[in-house]
Design a binder for these strands. Structure first.
Length: 922
RNA sequence: GCGGGUGUGGCGAAAUUGGUAGACGUAUCAGACUUAGGAUCUGACGCCGCGAGGCAUGGGGGUUCGAGUCCCUCCACCCGCACCA
């Protein structure tokens, strides 16, 4: 009887499906555990070996937790709305609903072959109306909420209206550009004015704003979807455009999003990325008078270094700053106009990439230093951003390198306030210097002077402490088709929410789902849908890809609920996701937005926790190892790697599947493409050697490896274990199929502990020896520890060692083997089930209990201790474990080899490290 | 530039956290059994050396009886962020 993995795997996968083996109940006396994979966008390209890496890790952990007695929620679904799905559909010329459905089917069948333990009954799709009904519902909650800054919590908007009616907005503070009003003023506003004011407080709000407009994609993109001035998807140019858009007021949550990072287990680098994105900076705002202009025109700058105020040699304001036209002197008008034209001609991309170039223009105006009255020239320059701080800075050339370069470039005299810390040829951003030329701050160390300066500024009423964030409110609308429609109707310029009983507002079916024109999305073309009988017009943009993924982890808890997005009972039972596995690419997108939604839902009392994920594990990316052939220019002749420099060649990707290691299968190559049919080769040692490069795994690079082929050839269990064996899950590594044989060999060796090809059944019910139990218990301990810390690669090694050792001991004992099978279940579920069954066990192995290890088999009564003299290993000596220090010394000193090294002398010190080694110092 | 991370055999990687470096697996070589082997098993396999032995965890220095592990310093690579005032 041999290991026939194909039959075994098919049989058990069918069985699991037929018996709903992995269905999970919300009612259980067991402790809960929630293991979640980042749900995929079902791309049409199919899986490559990189995709299942995290899924295998999470599957192992879920199965392990289940054996440990937990009620484990381990669901899967699809992020099926969004830009990628729509783009793919457009490329195929098919409706996204159809392509999405097809892709999901392919995806599912590929996943099923690997033997995952998902509870598929809870499957969800973000593009399903029964799901996005609740995405829309949560949007309405965001729309109907505001952030109460004194409670640090979201509150219903009705409660804000009450405050306005009673006392105006004095106590809640200015949000957006709204000025302070009192109760009477509020009552005097008409409906439209009131709604416009409320819009400045809503957590989901609409506003005209500069957005990242991508002409090629015909849509607006979020900041994190724009990389280096081009779209993340497709790499198309992105420009700024003013449009009415929806936003989420994530900036109100900046502090809580930062603070929450202290309580979750994310990697330091991921936390750092989020902190970076939020970009909190503590500083102060200072108001400067402008020479010769009225009191109503003052220059407000933002700085983190108020201590350097006496070192300010010039001011720089953003070219877009409101003051520019107001303060420019007639003499400078011409130059300023020219400069503004230049700035306008610069694309976002150029401004981002050509950062080294120093440009700017003097306005002719001067600000006045409030302490010594010094006249400070005001410049404009594109390096100062309108959107950050006040859009104006005070420049201190001796302390800031950018300011220094600017001063140098335009010959602005530099004031040195830090004495010898400034060497005249570069700025020194130190906080340790003792201030000079700094009026009342003279003699103070800079870091102490900050506090003194800001206090004085506040006393004078010309400055205040100010916290700034780099993060902006998140753009929440897309001029696209394939997304959630907004449950909003515009009436006379007022955004009216749809009543809850009209949800879901279904996405109308259209034939033309391509981009609309002039910024409006495709929905604008469906006039019968847009225009309502009462004169209202539906919002025509749709929600972005991250809408549905911001709360899906909650829906899995209660997926069939028609009355609520998730009952409080269900979310109180499952609580946070205990383990969330996925890549780092969502560090500042999905992971930030879903944290925001969770916090809002928590504030509003719909759920009981305000961080969605307890622990996040980032699986590394599996890269492709590409192979290259070198074609001699203008010929059909290919030259082997080592000889390529003798010719004028260019490198071409060659399909990794026809290369064995680095050796090209030249016959397969000839048949791979018609143009290669007559290819000729210049070989080295009779072989064609390919070049290697590690790149992202992608079809276009011919370096993808399809898991289906590996599963077909070696089985799912081998595939699962090999993916884990490659190395730590969190590390990126190039794929190499070579070693998979070793893992497959291990499973066959395991099989032979139960059945022999010739002899048949070899397992028996004899009593296990101490030596055998020792191997078993050591393995139990190791597997438990490794699985617990996600060290799946070392766990696989431990299995291999265990089977090797049992093989050497000729241990075919059921007592030992069945426990080993339980350990192995999470890693290789099919073979474990089968052997468990063949051992005559009742029930399913997935309901077994993870065995405990007995310490007595791990402890040795005596041990060979290494003995070293002055740290150098000399010999080993067997000593019983309960020997006292004195006894150890006696035994060691009596040893002949040790005596030889001591040369008759007595050691100064004998160090006896229990269970480790003995070292003597002479 | 700033932040995070990594550096160990031909290759993927281990190392109980300061205690015999290279487990486990691949690759390679040798052998056994075989009509055959891409099956199975055994052995060798960091470097130098016939050997005893010596040298080895990116380089250099330090702490320690003892360092891959801790400290200082330099170097290389990967990943984020980047005129953010």
């Amino acid at each position: 009887m041999e290991y026939n993995f194909r039959n075994i795997e098919q049989k058990w996968q069918q069985q699991w499906q037929d018996t709903n083996a992995y269905k999970v109940s919300n009612e259980s006396a067991k402790p809960k555990f929630y293991v979640l994979d980042m749900f995929p966008y079902p791309s049409g390209a199919g899986l490559h070996v990189g995709h299942p890496l995290g899924y295998i890790g999470s599957d192992i952990y879920s199965r392990y937790k289940r054996l440990k007695g937990f009620n484990v929620l381990h669901p899967m679904g699809y992020d099926s709305f969004g830009l990628p799905a729509e783009q793919y559909a457009i490329e195929r010329g098919q409706h996204p609903a159809i392509t999405t459905d097809q892709n999901i089917k392919t995806f599912r069948s590929q996943l099923d072959k690997i033997g995952f333990s998902y509870d598929w009954s809870r499957e969800l799709r973000t593009s399903d109306p029964s799901y996005y009904k609740w995405t829309q519902w949560i949007f309405l909650k965001l729309f109907n909420s505001w952030y109460n800054r004194s409670l640090h919590k979201a509150r219903d908007i009705s409660n804000l209206i009450l405050v306005f009616e009673k006392e105006g907005n004095g106590s809640v503070g200015k949000h957006g550009g709204i000025s302070i009003f009192i109760s009477e003023e509020w009552m005097a506003f008409n409906e439209k004015q009131q709604q416009e004011i409320l819009m400045n407080y809503r957590l989901a709000f609409s506003s005209f704003g500069e957005v990242n407009w991508c002409e090629a994609l015909g849509t607006v993109l979020a900041n994190d979807e724009v990389v280096n001035g081009v779209s993340e998807r497709g790499g198309f140019p992105v420009i700024k455009k003013k449009m009415r858009q929806w936003y989420l007021r994530i900036t109100e949550y900046a502090d809580r999003l930062l603070e929450g990072l202290e309580h979750v287990e994310f990697t330091e680098s991921l936390k750092e990325q989020q902190r970076n994105w939020i970009g909190k900076s503590q500083g102060s705002e200072i108001v400067f008078d402008i020479k010769g202009v009225g009191d109503n025109k003052k220059l407000r700058v933002y700085t983190t270094r108020p201590d350097t105020i006496f070192g300010v040699d010039f001011m720089v304001i953003a070219p877009e700053h409101d003051l520019v036209p107001q303060i420019t002197t007639p003499e400078q008008q011409e130059a300023i106009n020219q400069y503004l034209n230049y700035v306008k001609s610069r694309s976002e991309r150029e401004r981002l990439t050509e950062v080294k170039q120093i440009t700017g223009c003097f306005t002719g105006a001067y600000a006045l230093n409030p302490f010594d009255g010094k006249e400070i020239p005001i410049w404009i320059a594109e390096y100062v951003l309108a959107g950050y701080g006040t859009g104006a800075i005070m420049a201190v050339p001796c302390g800031d390198q950018r300011d220094f370069s600017f001063a140098n470039h335009f010959d602005i005299p530099i004031t040195n306030i830090i004495g010898s810390y400034f060497n005249g040829s570069e700025a020194n951003p130190t906080k340790e210097a003792v201030l000079e030329n700094s009026g009342f701050l003279d003699g103070l160390v800079m870091k102490d002077a900050m506090e003194v300066a800001i206090t004085r500024l506040e006393e004078l009423g010309i400055g205040k402490r100010q916290v700034n964030y780099r993060m902006r409110d998140a753009g929440f609308s897309r001029q696209r088709y394939w997304g959630e429609p907004f449950p909003i109707v515009w009436k006379d310029g007022i955004a009216c929410p749809l009543p809850e009983n009209e949800l879901p507002l279904e996405l109308p079916y259209v034939d033309k789902y391509g981009p609309g024109h002039e910024g409006e999305g495709p929905l604008a073309n469906i006039t019968h849908w847009v225009n309502l009988p009462d004169g209202g017009k539906r919002e025509t943009s749709t929600m972005p890809g991250y809408a549905g993924s911001s709360w899906y982890f909650l829906r899995y808890m209660d997926p069939f609920n028609d009355n609520e997005f998730c009952s409080r009972k269900a979310s109180d039972y499952w609580k946070q996701v205990d383990l969330y596995i996925g890549g780092t690419e969502h560090a500042v997108g999905h992971l930030l937005y879903s944290r925001l939604w969770t916090k809002v839902l928590f504030d509003l009392g719909f759920i009981g926790h305000d961080e969605p994920y307890k622990k996040l594990l980032n699986q590394g990316m599996i890269q492709g190892s590409s192979r290259f052939v070198y074609r001699i220019m203008g010929t059909n002749e290919f030259v082997s790697f080592a000889l390529k420099d003798n010719y004028d060649t260019h490198a071409l990707h060659v399909d990794v599947n026809i290369v064995d290691g680095v050796i090209l299968d030249t016959e397969a190559f000839k048949t791979s493409k018609p143009e290669y049919a007559n290819a000729e080769f210049i070989l080295e040692d009779g072989k064609y050697v390919c070049g290697i490069e590690v790149e992202k795994m992608s079809k276009s690079k011919f370096n993808t490896v399809n898991p289906d082929i590996l599963v077909e050839k070696y089985g799912a269990d081998t595939f699962r274990m090999y993916e884990m064996f490659l190395g730590p899950v969190e590390m990126s590594k190039p794929w190499d199929t070579k070693g998979i044989e070793g893992v497959h060999r291990f499973l066959r060796k395991l099989w032979r502990l139960f059945f022999d090809e010739l002899k048949g059944k070899v397992w028996n019910t004899d009593k296990a020896t101490d030596a055998e139990l020792k191997v078993l218990h050591r393995t139990i301990k190791k597997i438990e520890e490794d699985t617990e810390k996600f060290s799946f690669n070392t766990a696989v090694s431990a299995f291999m060692m265990c089977v090797n050792e049992l093989g050497e001991l000729k241990c075919y004992k059921k007592e030992v083997l069945e426990k080993l099978l339980i350990l192995l279940t999470p890693y290789a579920p099919h073979i474990s089930e089968e052997l468990w069954n063949l051992l005559g066990n009742e029930g399913r192995i997935l309901d077994a209990t993870f065995p405990g290890y007995d310490g007595k088999y791990l402890v040795e009564t005596s041990k060979e201790y290494p003995v070293s003299v002055n740290g150098r290993l000399r010999t080993t000596i067997g000593i019983s474990l309960d020997a006292t220090q004195d006894e150890v010394e006696k035994i060691v000193l009596a040893n002949e080899t040790v005596q030889k090294w001591l040369e008759g002398k007595l050691p100064k010190k004998i160090i006896f490290v229990k269970n480790k080694m003995i070292n003597m110092v002479i």
